[in-house]
Amino acid sequence: MAYSHDKNIIVEIIDLHKWFGSFHVLKGINLHVHRGERIVICGPSGSGKSTLIRCINRLEEHQKGKIIVDGIELTNNVKNIEKIRSEVGMVFQHFNLFPHLTVLENLTLGPIWVRKMPKKEAEEIAMHFLEKVHIVDQAHKYPGQLSGGQQQRVAIARSLCMSPKIMLFDEPTSALDPEMIKEVLDVMIELAQEGMTMIVVTHEMGFAKKVAHRVMFMDGGVIVESNPPEEFFSNPRHERTKLFLSQILH
């Protein structure tokens, strides 16, 4: 299968299949993501959203099809995987900060050890991004001393410190109390406005309307529908999409 050599495409997924044991989770996903593009993925629980974006930085291994990230195909080549992971930021539902390191150390770990940056420079960059996510004053605390919203913003800053070419978000706000969701979404919106390429799994439809170029609906391991937000919300084509939207929008 040939794939395009368009430099504007950062992620290219061709006929992707993934099984957990004998359970067919992803059933032929095709997806092109352009640089600067922002995609929101929604869909019912178990539809394979997390699995799809986790395949992009090889936290999950796919069994069939191709994934090409920034011109490098994901294979078993460990060096390539590490290279791609260092270019792809990921934000998790449960933050996954390193509890034994301070906020600042969480942020500098990647730059120092992966980018081989001098400590001082890494710390300057870290402070810059902490400022960006509005928590400079917490730099020397440990993650356990922060609220969920603050932790998630630290996690975003940690990814940003690696100057990623694309950011993946897996339900970044669904483990947060309602009053903290906004502070995290605000940071993500600012990021979007600066032109960051993003793939976001979320059910925050307000966010999708505001920043997404495309909204995708996944169900049963396939992308059922993919359209710009105006179209997606006002004129869903498929019954399953309509049903899902009616459920989450009430």
Partner: peptide
């Protein structure tokens, strides 16, 4: 999640 966070930084 700790392994995944470390991996996603490229460690």
């Amino acid at each position: 999640g700790q392994y995944e966070a470390a991996a996603s930084l490229g460690l």
